[in-house]
Design a protein around this nucleic acid. Sequence first.
DNA 1: CTCAAGTATATGAGAGTTCAACTAAAATGG
DNA 2: CCATTTTAGTTGAACTCTCATATACTTGAG
Lengths: 149, 149
Amino acid sequence: MTRWLDDDEQRAWRNFVAATQLLYAALDRQLQRDAGMPHAYYVVLVGLSEAPERRMRMSELATWAQSSQSRLSHAVARLEERGWVRRERCPDDGRGSFAVLTDEGFAALAGAAHGHVEEVRRSLFDVLSPEQVRALDDICATVRDTLER
Amino acid sequence: MTRWLDDDEQRAWRNFVAATQLLYAALDRQLQRDAGMPHAYYVVLVGLSEAPERRMRMSELATWAQSSQSRLSHAVARLEERGWVRRERCPDDGRGSFAVLTDEGFAALAGAAHGHVEEVRRSLFDVLSPEQVRALDDICATVRDTLER
DNA sequence: CTCAAGTATATGAGAGTTCAACTAAAATGG
DNA sequence: CCATTTTAGTTGAACTCTCATATACTTGAG
């Protein structure tokens, strides 16, 4: 038998879907408008920017960015066309390759970061109390943990 | 000056992004596998199923489903091809049209609902305490309210 | 050393989304 | 009324994502 959602759960679920979709829509619009990239690409650039020497193996980066390898491969191809990322063959493993953040890519990221953070604040942190932020972190950590296996 | 995220906010944000993306990925995979439709289409069908006479004006439905008119128009076109939705001209307003859920569409929705709800439970409600659900609802309602203007 | 199996990544087709036109029908306001 | 503006909805192109498949290299068994 299906355990349907009770009224509280139903309401919570619909608010969740509405809030998250509005949030991502706002993020994507902002990033697309101001930096010409979707949020997924931004995340890839962030990953690389924080990696040692701004380089990461493709599969490592895919894991980091919660992306399938295929998705990442397409994304990096796109980012490469724009000169923001460059690929390098991996010397240790002939199958592998590194994605490397170029200076232009770093600059693009730096240029996008301000507006992005502002949008995240406006949409999320500015409207939540510190306790709510803690609660949200808790909830998301739990869900993340559950789904990461 | 940019007000960057502090460590707590940073952590919360990354957990939020990770959790929501994993969650939507799980939902979409489940619905695609078991019912051959993405979550966005499921939402459209739900909207129609709850409307009087299972029919709604396109723009009303777009608002309900948090979708752009264009997105909805494409989606309904697709759903129409499968025979799950049918369009009807609006008698009062020559520009408008109704989307109507067909019996096949209702059946498809009914068939998809069980697995979908299971997935939502597994991924979210089963791992959260009642207080967390309340907190999440609160947070999402706030964010939703903020972004809906 | 060789062959089968596994791993890292790329690629192409198909599907969904976005954005910018575009059509057609109201509404508004001289 | 007529002209303008607004509203409802559609369409096509460009882009991203997914899924299945292909390619090339590595590993491990015998």
